[in-house]
Nucleic acid binder design. Structure first.
Length: 422
RNA sequence: GGAGAGGUGGCAGAGUGGUCGAUUGCGGUAGACUCGAAAUCUAUUGUAGGGAAACCUACCGGGGGUUCGAAUCCCUCCCUCUCCGCCA
């Protein structure tokens, strides 16, 4: 949630910021509700103050051993004059909150204007894009011949988009996850394994609820939700806490499966690993002092980039335009690797600075100047999501003889083998 | 699942119907002492909302109730701990 004070202090700034994201937000309604709210508050609180004062008088009389029945009768006879105003206030605050909770974060000044992914800016790129040799097969064929996965049986036992990893495929998946985690640990991130089901408050804290309920798998019986990313449980690790400024930054890395309904994306990227309902991802989550979050964002992105570079996969880093950023992001970089057979850039990481957007929802604070409470900044980035990395690896490192060359960094996790074969 | 105990400020921990937003300790901030630091001493210090301010309102796990008045009594839900049962 954005800082609600901005509604009062600078509604134009809000309007313009949301317009940059292609959103005509009901700013006038927000201003109206804020004003209504404040006028109702003064009435309601004055009535409460009067009542409190009268009750205190009763207490005083009783302590003095005097008869208070007259004073009590006077309070009773006054009745509940403010009940209606209180109900109106509650309704006003609810509408205000409902609107604010559904509105996205404000883009940073350095975010380029734009409407869609077409307008994203290539911030940098690495590696030579090679044309695939004529004999090269797409990742599904390579995977099938090496018996790395089994989509058919995954579909049988769960549904489309739930792959089964088999043999070297399973080993490769595990190798990627282990290597990612080891890299992050070496860079100072603390590894954590969180619950894969979380409650409503956690989903609200990161911004997945209420707006994106249709993207979540739900256990209605227990009101729990399957996590779409480790970002949700790991960010909420510190919900309702004060983080000691001396402990900042706090940096976690976490491997979890991710569960996404992908409602509305049917027919898009249906092939193989490009879009799944369940996939593995290692996520980095970073809690920062507000003044260091921009620098942290660069470091976080560089950390994710270092992984694809060490895997030897050509990549590019996009600075997302205002219209293409996720709901909570103030600024976001996407890292895309090149899939030579698919002839596509595939997003394997998204590194976002949420500033205080999530911290406000999840109530994650620290101490600022004069030890005053302030909201922390949260950031996170994939480091990395495995499925599309697997696609790029298969398409890039397949050999003409049908084997798969193993990137050097992964060999320690795969019996030291240079090539995998069926 | 059954029985019992508990959930209070940044932390620890008092408080069982009336100046309790809450004793006290730790921590924080400011000052004194010191060349400096530590120790010690003094003062100050909850969060959020409203208000130009004085000040007011709300908050003692969440929600509801009783009462003129609730941290305190009642109902309900959640969570933690101990014991029992079941099970990986």
């Amino acid at each position: 949630m954005i800082n609600p004070r901005l509604v009062r202090e600078n509604p134009e700034l809000l309007r313009q910021a949301w317009l940059r994201r292609g959103l005509e937000a009901p700013v006038d309604r927000l201003v109206e509700l804020d004003e209504l709210r404040r006028s109702l508050i003064s009435g309601v609180e004055a009535a409460k103050a009067a009542k409190n004062h009268a009750s205190a008088e009763v207490g005083k009389l009783k302590r003095e051993g005097k008869d208070a029945s007259e004073a009590i009768a006077a309070i009773k006879s006054r009745g509940d004059e403010q009940v209606e105003a209180e109900a109106q206030l509650a309704a006003t605050e609810k509408e205000l909150e409902d609107i604010l909770m559904g509105l996205p974060n404000l883009p940073q000044a350095s975010v380029p204007n734009g409407r869609s992914s077409e307008d994203n800016v290539v911030a940098r790129s690495w590696g030579e894009i090679q044309e695939a040799p004529a004999w090269a097969k797409d990742h599904l064929v390579v995977g099938e011949s090496l018996k790395l996965f089994d989509f058919k049986r995954g579909a049988k036992i769960a549904g489309a988009g739930f792959p089964v990893y088999t043999g070297w495929g399973s080993r490769l998946e595990r190798a990627l996850i282990s290597w990612f985690l080891d890299e992050h640990r070496a860079a100072g991130f603390l590894e954590v394994q969180p619950p894969l089901l979380v409650n409503r408050a956690s989903m609200t804290g990161t911004g997945n609820l209420p707006k994106f309920a249709d993207q979540l798998y739900t256990c209605t019986e227990d009101e729990l939700y399957l996590i779409p990313t480790a970002e949700v449980p790991v960010t909420n690790l510190h919900a309702d806490e004060f983080l000691d400024p001396k402990e900042l930054p706090i940096r976690y890395c976490s491997y979890t499966p991710c569960f996404r309904r992908e409602a509305g994306s049917y027919g898009k990227d249906t092939k193989g690993f490009l879009r799944l309902h369940q996939f593995d991802k290692v996520e980095m989550v970073w809690f920062s002092a507000p003044e260091s979050s921009e620098a942290a964002h660069e470091t976080l992105t560089a950390q994710a980039e270092s992984l694809v570079r060490k895997l030897g996969l050509p990549y590019r880093t996009l600075l997302l335009c205002s219209g293409d950023m996720g709901f909570g992001a103030a600024k976001c970089y996407d890292i895309e690797v090149w899939a030579p057979v698919e002839k596509k850039w595939l997003e394997v990481s998204s590194c976002s600075n949420f500033e205080d957007f999530q911290a406000r929802r999840a109530n994650i604070r620290t101490r600022g100047a004069e030890n005053k409470p302030i909201l922390v900044h949260t950031l996170n980035g994939s480091g990395l999501a495995t499925p599309r990395i697997l696609v790029a690896l298969l398409e890039t490192y397949q050999q003409e003889n049908g084997t798969l060359k193993v990137p050097e960094v992964l060999r320690p996790y795969l019996d030291g083998l240079e090539f995998l074969s069926a």
